[in-house]
């Protein structure tokens, strides 16, 4: 309010950050008391919250492994958050050392942390930008330095879209990204869903996230499927994330408890 409009945003670590809350769910300690308090409130409302985060993270791991196996060597991870255990570049570069990974996040602390983690890694970098400005992401010199948009790119927007309300026109944002991609590029999406859950639980979860800068925007499976417009979903389509190409039949049991839906799509030639 008192801050002039030319001034950049302040760093407010008195406010819970969704990136650090997610780290807490995953068992990390890259978080502050305020983040833990919010995450604990979320766990009180939705006891499976840590499991959801883990299931989502496991989905990311399997999706990246799938893409590396499909020959993809360029990854653009938008909304990468705190670069905690099981990062895209760890998975991708272990399997393919020449893989290039650009992380994008709007949270300045997450960005600073990522920069520290990635120091010395020539094949990976972090860019501070908002998913709501896809054209800036695509035109960013650091993105352009590592990613050749004339060749296939995998765009990962994992556990992020539930922070993008319909008012921000997610379909248009994705279209802008899609238009920048070469044929045979990929899109990985996952987000929170309330399919099969009670209204109370949903309301409580939404109340927790209203304390952050990123309120929740729950979507149904059909809504998320629609966001793959222009991409051809690979099997099994948009499903509860534990059901997406599970490593063992048991790991897909009670998949709906993950509350996350996701899928992987391929851009036709």
């Amino acid at each position: 309010m008192g801050r002039p409009n030319w001034a950049p945003d302040e760093i407010d670590i008195e406010r819970p950050s969704v990136a650090r809350m997610y780290d807490y769910y995953l068992g990390g300690s890259h978080n502050f008391a305020v983040d833990r308090a919010a995450a604990q409130a979320m766990v009180a409302a939705v006891p499976e919250a840590p499991l959801m985060a883990q299931a989502n993270r496991a989905f990311l791991r399997r999706a990246v492994q799938f893409l590396v196996d499909a020959g993809v060597r360029q990854f653009l991870d938008i909304g990468s958050g705190i670069p905690t255990v099981g990062n895209v570049h760890e998975i991708a570069q272990r399997a393919a050392p020449d893989a290039r990974v650009v992380y994008v996040d709007v949270d300045p602390v997450a960005v600073a942390h990522s920069r520290e983690i990635l120091a010395g890694n020539d094949g990976a970098t972090i860019v501070q930008e908002d998913l709501r400005h896809p054209e800036r992401i695509v035109d960013h010199p650091d993105v352009r330095r590592l990613i050749d948009f004339d060749r296939p790119v995998a765009v990962l927007i994992v556990a992020v879209l539930h922070f993008v309300p319909d008012d921000d026109r997610p379909a248009e944002l994705l279209r802008t990204l899609r238009d920048a991609l070469a044929p045979d590029s990929w899109l990985v999406l996952s987000q929170a869903s309330a399919d099969g859950r009670g209204d109370d639980e949903r309301a409580e979860a939404e109340a927790v996230y209203r304390r952050t800068d990123n309120p929740l925007w729950i979507r149904s499976r059909s809504e998320l499927t629609a966001l793959f417009d222009g991409f051809e979903l690979v099997e099994p389509g948009v499903v509860w994330v534990p059901q997406w190409r599970p490593e063992s039949p048991e790991s897909a049991e009670e998949a709906e408890r993950s509350a996350f839906i996701g899928g992987v799509g391929r851009l036709g030639g």
Binding site: I11, S29, P108, V111, A112, H113, E116
Partner: peptide, 24 residues
């Protein structure tokens, strides 16, 4: 991990300060 996230927060703050000074 606590040390590294605090360091990141400080770095981000310093960065924001620098950006503020630059825009000032």
């Amino acid at each position: 991990e606590q040390e590294s996230i605090r360091r990141a927060a400080m770095t981000a703050r310093a960065e924001a300060e620098r950006a503020l000074r630059a825009s000032e």
